[in-house]
Design a protein around this nucleic acid. Sequence first.
DNA 1: CTGAAAGCGCTAACAT
DNA 2: ATGTTAGCGCTTTCAG
Lengths: 337, 337
Amino acid sequence: MVTLAEVARHAGVSASTVSYVLSGKRSISDKTRKRVRRSIRELGYHPNAGARALASSRSSIIALMVPLRSDMYVPVMMEIAITVSTTAREFGHDVLLLTDVEGPTAVRRVAGSGLADAVILMDVELDDERIPLLKEVGRPAALIGLPADASGLTCIDLDFTATGALCADHLADLGHREIAVVGEAASVYQRHTGFAERTLEGLRRRSDERGIKVIHRPCEGTYESTAGTLTRIFGERPGTTALVVQNEAAVGPLLSLLWQTGRAVPEDVSVVAICPEQVALQSSPQLTSVSIPAQEMGKRAVELVMAKIDGETPQELTLLEPHLTQRASSGPVLGTR
Amino acid sequence: MVTLAEVARHAGVSASTVSYVLSGKRSISDKTRKRVRRSIRELGYHPNAGARALASSRSSIIALMVPLRSDMYVPVMMEIAITVSTTAREFGHDVLLLTDVEGPTAVRRVAGSGLADAVILMDVELDDERIPLLKEVGRPAALIGLPADASGLTCIDLDFTATGALCADHLADLGHREIAVVGEAASVYQRHTGFAERTLEGLRRRSDERGIKVIHRPCEGTYESTAGTLTRIFGERPGTTALVVQNEAAVGPLLSLLWQTGRAVPEDVSVVAICPEQVALQSSPQLTSVSIPAQEMGKRAVELVMAKIDGETPQELTLLEPHLTQRASSGPVLGTR
DNA sequence: CTGAAAGCGCTAACAT
DNA sequence: ATGTTAGCGCTTTCAG
């Protein structure tokens, strides 16, 4: 294994010079830098990560804790994870993939051992048990999702309240007066993940303001449960002219079922989805949607922890503004009904 | 930060004793062990990862390189990643999430720097450019997927050739004589990922043996492309009574389209899928399928690299035997046609 | 069964 | 602009 000392000898300089060429933390003459770089290349030198971490007490690793739960839409998690990884690389960091099988104490382990310089938590719950541990270890951290009490934490999430309102506005503008929400699985609401409730709250409030009636039904996302949900909705509210779907798994079944039951989209029923762009685009018809900005969240989360590592104090709460893209699935209420 | 030395002082023993209590690499009297454990607990000691890595030249980290390509089914990648992570923990290791944005040299970086003790490559291509680097760095490694030349490598994959044959047998047993394969996107075949070709090869050979006619059409997996693929299939081969689908994205559209065009499954058309169990189960009707054993592959990959870290020499090639589960989507060819 | 001590390879003062 | 050097916290011989 090639060491820094060997590079130094080969280049005819001291160890610190090599170190500084690498880190750029002090000025080096062009000539020296070139010589050192050359030696590094010729010897095939790679700085030892452990030694570096020990000497600098920085591991250049960010821990990313992903949930194991299966009721979250997996591709979004993966997209976030990948964006976190690539963004971290832009900051010279790597990403450690943590699951919660170990329980919340994984946070303590990786932070306490200095394995990770910072922690990013995904799929944060309203009352997340990892949060106390996060505060205990005192490492820079960012949460993707919003806990009940975000004070002293750095959080990033889509503004789901505004998202709900945006959907209500869009449908109100199109003349809809009775709408229904096909929501997440009941377990998601029970778990108090927050985002689902916030969406509903924003949607209900805006709907009230605009004189729209709303009903909400959770949905497991299987074919059968979606069928049941639709039957209930149209049974209880035959005047329903629009659906807001916040459940990726239900989108496919929903559209099939509407087709099968002879309801044309958007002529008979408008559909607005809150989902990743990809889901909206590959549906038929393509869906009017508010997209989940997975990449943006992952990127910002990394930027936030990097800022904290550098001693900055970023704002506690970052709520990303939702954007609604109108596509083929929503339209005005037709005159005769 | 609590150090080992502080623990030693607190417990009234030497540093090495504390170290050995932790590693169990030499026998310690019960009394001493208890005292040390107590001090560790009371002081809240966590061994420093960097120091450990430096002194032992083992980082206890496995690098997992995931592809960025979007034509692979994401939930499977995630399932593998999570299984790798949890299995690695059982061996006292953590997992570093690497993407290929950095290019293949990421392998060199993490292995060369001692950041990772071993590397696991996902979604290996027939002629994967990461492989030469892997050999260069000489770290333990395992590949999920099969390159063209697997000599000197440790690979694990589903036996796709056998999978293809299994599908052919199942349909032959049910009396089918003309079958069609709805395959992966053309890009997957062009990229020579191997698994798609192997499936086809196994299916064709067995079909020949059993006197079945096969046609194969790639499919992008969108609604439109799936519709086009089906139209072509039934246009060219009106006598087709069964479909083998190897494309997760196409499964949903395919079933909807069959329904819409008045072809009952399985009465008019049998469908056999090669897909993750979850996809088969949440379809309607539930699909007869050969499942992709994501967890098994992840777990075995970790076990293989751990064995190599311990100096063992596991077999080069592990092909997991496919299992076909009959569900509601396949049945005998009906008499009158 | 336990202790002493020599590094592991690098960073970051402290010098000059 | 560069060199010297004292650690960083742990593992692991070598002694006893």
